[in-house]
Every structure is written in structure tokens, then in C-alpha cells.
Design a protein around this nucleic acid. Structure first.
Length: 384
RNA sequence: GCGUGGAUGGCAGAGCGGUCAAUUGCACUUGGCUGUAAACCAAGCGCCUUCGGGCUACGGGGGUUCGAAUCCCUCUCCACGCA
């Protein structure tokens, strides 16, 4: 079984069509990877996932270690069975939480202002924002955890560098991430008979992605891309993007890197994105994107809409929708748009009715899946 | 009819002589959300403003005081109790 194969290459750009094959099914790329951090695609029951067209989802080891605990998930036979998610799953290593929780402090009963994160060569000490208890993450532990929950695609443990970091700090952090990658590969290899980075565990193959860092600095980004490429992991992810930099900077960071990544490997862009970002990055050869945007925005009352090629985000809580009989998107065939008016959705959100979160999330996920479907067709037709 | 307790910004509800244009919550408006501490967060929310400030306000009227949402008198209305 080949993990990734390219089925079509664009002549106009670096865009390509591909297929990722995992123990839990195939993923046609380019693909969107909605985020189900805690093992749930917030507001959406698993039975709707296929109907929406979702091919793969993203869980996060950090949150699952905190609760319910890796041992619990393991006893249930892994995250797929535990959470009833039958599609391929990617798991994140916890590296993003270095960025997400840094500078923030836990306010506990005892004392206030305990830093939530401490990075050392060994790994990262986190303080659970939920309980205040300390969690240790290292490359070895992160990989072990990810193995135990049994995600199909797993991420190397990295440090997501904060925006504004100096060249010196970014160099140190990126090099540390590289050393961590070697430890991740070694851990993965030591627990496996073959192949080295895709362990076979009770029939399950897991594929490790190395992560490119380098912050906002071109030299560091390129060096990181080269280093990660050399390690020959089954896939490669680009991280440390969209952490506060401008749109222009973000585009550059990805553009600097892609020429140095092996064509035959699947490329994942961590944490992106917005529809306009996806449209820009697919022609650069990015195959998969994970992002909380469609689900989080939906829960905050914001849904996707388009007029031709123009994409919009509309806020359902605005009073102007009170009497609007139209659906969110007239030609959208999702459950929400086929049945519900903007007025009713507005009402649900103003009243904080649970159904609103479901319907909005359903629409946003469906809408994005449609965009990816169209993208795949356009690549096939040579339009991208 | 008598007694007691009340009447505060759209609503609820603090304040009980100056630091009160008035705590707080809700509602409302606006902005934000990109590997999820996110069904969340932030700002605004009497009128005017050259952003220094000015004006009108705590049921109505009158009074005490340098000064009242806060004390006194009275009227109106509400709640509860007794006839």
C-alpha cells in the first residue's frame, strides 16, 4: 500500500491531485481537514460526517492527554472507536500549544500567574489550562501518545514560534525542533519493525510528518525545509504560520519553503485556513489544510457565503436577518440551506439555541468541502 | 380607610449626603476569530462635544444643605398586612 500518490499534475502551477491511503480509508487531495481537537467535530455528530463529505479530521494529543487520558482511549481501542470517527485521522503533537499557551498564565486557586508553558531541550512543560496540573510533552512522549490513540497521520513534536521572535531565538527554536524531529523519527522507528516511519501496529499504519519551522526569516525557513526534507518522513507539514504575521508574510513563508520540499511527499499546511488562503496555497502544491475556522466561526454565528468567485462571511446575529426568508446560500445543497431561513438561524443564535450551532457548523463544513471538490475538478481540467 | 415597605438608565438590580452620568447582570450595537483554554473574546451603550469638557437625569412637586439618587414634607402609583 502506497501512502501517497499523485494522480494528476497541473501544468499551470504546482497544484496536483493526489490520494492518501490510510488504514481507515482514502483521502483525495487537495483536502480540507476539519479540526476535532478533543475527538469531536464540535456540534457535529459522526453520522453526519460522510454526508457532509468530510474525508479526514484532525485531533490533538494535548487535549486528549489532559482529558480523558491516553490510557482510556487506548482501552477503547484507539481514538477512532472511542470517538466513533471512522474516517482517517491526523493527530497534532501538542507543539502548537507552545505558541497558544505561551505568555498566558494560569490563574489557580493557590497563586496567580503561573506560566503555562516552559520549553527546554528535553521537551515542554505545560500547565493544563483546564485543571492547572502539569503535563510534560517531549518528542518521545508525544509520539508514544499519538501511537496509542492510533491516528493515521501523526505530527512531529515541534515548537510553534511566536510572532515577533528574534532571528536568534527563531534559529534556536527551529534547530531545537529539528533535533526533536530526529527524536520523533527514532521513537517511531524503535517501536516499529518496518517500515521505519510508518509503524505497523495491529494492522494500523501510522505516518509521521516532519514539521518545517523558521518563523518569518527566509534563511531559516529554507534551512528548515531542507532539513525536514532530508529526514524522509512520509509527509511534511509547514507550521508556525498565521501566528500574527501579515498576510503577505504568511504567503512568503510558504512560498520560500515549497520549492525545497520533495514533490512526491504530501504537504500539509498547519492551521490554514481562510478560503482565500486555501485558494492561494493549492497552486503552490499544498495538499491538505487543517483549520478551526469553519467550525469556530460557525459557533460564533458566522457562516460562509459566495457570489460567484467572491467569498463572504456573514454574521447571523445581525438584526438585518430577522425577517430574511432566504437561506444562507441559495444554491447550497446542505441540510441547513435546503430547509432553514436566515431569519430562523438568526433567531436560534440570538437565543443561543443549540440547533443553531449545529446548523451553522454543518453549512460551513459542507461549504468548504464543496470548494475542495471544485478545486479538484479545476485541477483535473487544467484550470489551476 | 389605616399601617408598612417600595418607585434608579430598554429590563433586572446595586448605591442610601460629596469621590455618581451612577457597580453589576441581561438585552442591544460594533469589531475580532487561521495546527481550538473559543456555543468565545473585546469595545460601546442619556444628549452634545473643537474630546478639555458641557447639558439633562435616579416617579412628580416642594424643602433642608456649600452640596441630594441618598435627609424632610407632599402628591401619584405599586406590593404586602389590617379593617
Amino acid at each position: 500500500m502506497r501512502f501517497f500518490c499523485i494522480t494528476h499534475k497541473s501544468r499551470r502551477s504546482q497544484a496536483r491531485l493526489g490520494k492518501i491511503t490510510t488504514s481507515h480509508g482514502e483521502i483525495l487531495t487537495p483536502a480540507f481537514v476539519p479540526v476535532a481537537t478533543k475527538g469531536t467535530l464540535k456540534a457535529i455528530p459522526p453520522k453526519d460526517i460522510r454526508e457532509i463529505g468530510i474525508q479526514v479530521a484532525f485531533v490533538n494529543i494535548f487535549h486528549l492527554v489532559d482529558h480523558p487520558g491516553i490510557d482510556v482511549i487506548e482501552k477503547f481501542g484507539g481514538i477512532h472507536t472511542y470517538a466513533n470517527l471512522s474516517i482517517p485521522l491526523m493527530s497534532d503533537s501538542g507543539g502548537f500549544q507552545v505558541f497558544s499557551l505561551a505568555e498566558k498564565r494560569a490563574s489557580t486557586r493557590e497563586g496567580e500567574g503561573i506560566p503555562l508553558v516552559k520549553v527546554t531541550e528535553k521537551g515542554v512543560r505545560f500547565r493544563s489550562p483546564r485543571t492547572g496540573r502539569e503535563l510534560l510533552f517531549s518528542p518521545e512522549l508525544s509520539i508514544r501518545y499519538q501511537e496509542k490513540i492510533g491516528a493515521d497521520i501523526i505530527m512531529a513534536f515541534d515548537e510553534c514560534i511566536y510572532y515577533g521572535a528574534s532571528h536568534q531565538y527563531t534559529t534556536e527554536a527551529t534547530e531545537r525542533t529539528h533535533r526533536w524531529l530526529l527524536r520523533c523519527i527514532q521513537t517511531k522507528g524503535s517501536s516499529s519493525t518496518l517500515p521505519p516511519q510508518a509503524r505497523d501496529r495491529s494492522g494500523l499504519q501510522q505516518f509521521l510528518y516532519g514539521i518545517v519551522q523558521g518563523g518569518v526569516f527566509k534563511d531559516l525557513r529554507i534551512a528548515s525545509a531542507k532539513f525536514v526534507a532530508q529526514q524522509n518522513t512520509p509527509g511534511i507539514a509547514i507550521g508556525g504560520v498565521s501566528v500574527g504575521e501579515t498576510k503577505k508574510e504568511m504567503r512568503e513563508q510558504v512560498k520560500w519553503v515549497t520549492p525545497f520540499l520533495p514533490e512526491e511527499k504530501p504537504k500539509h499546511l498547519l492551521g490554514i485556513g481562510r478560503i482565500e488562503d486555501i485558494l492561494d496555497f493549492v497552486p503552490l502544491g499544498i495538499d491538505t489544510f487543517d483549520c478551526v475556522e469553519p467550525t469556530r466561526l460557525a459557533r460564533n454565528g458566522v457562516v460562509f457565503q459566495n457570489k460567484g468567485k467572491q467569498f463572504y462571511r456573514i454574521d447571523l446575529t445581525k438584526a438585518k436577518y430577522l425577517k430574511d426568508k432566504n437561506p444562507i446560500q441559495k444554491d447550497c445543497q446542505c441540510y441547513t440551506c435546503e430547509i432553514f431561513s436566515l431569519s430562523f438561524l438568526h433567531h436560534l443564535f440570538k437565543e443561543r439555541e443549540l440547533l443553531g450551532y449545529y446548523l451553522a457548523t454543518y453549512h460551513n463544513l459542507y461549504f468548504l468541502e464543496q470548494i475542495f471538490k471544485k478545486l479538484r475538478i479545476q485541477i483535473q481540467k487544467g484550470e489551476i
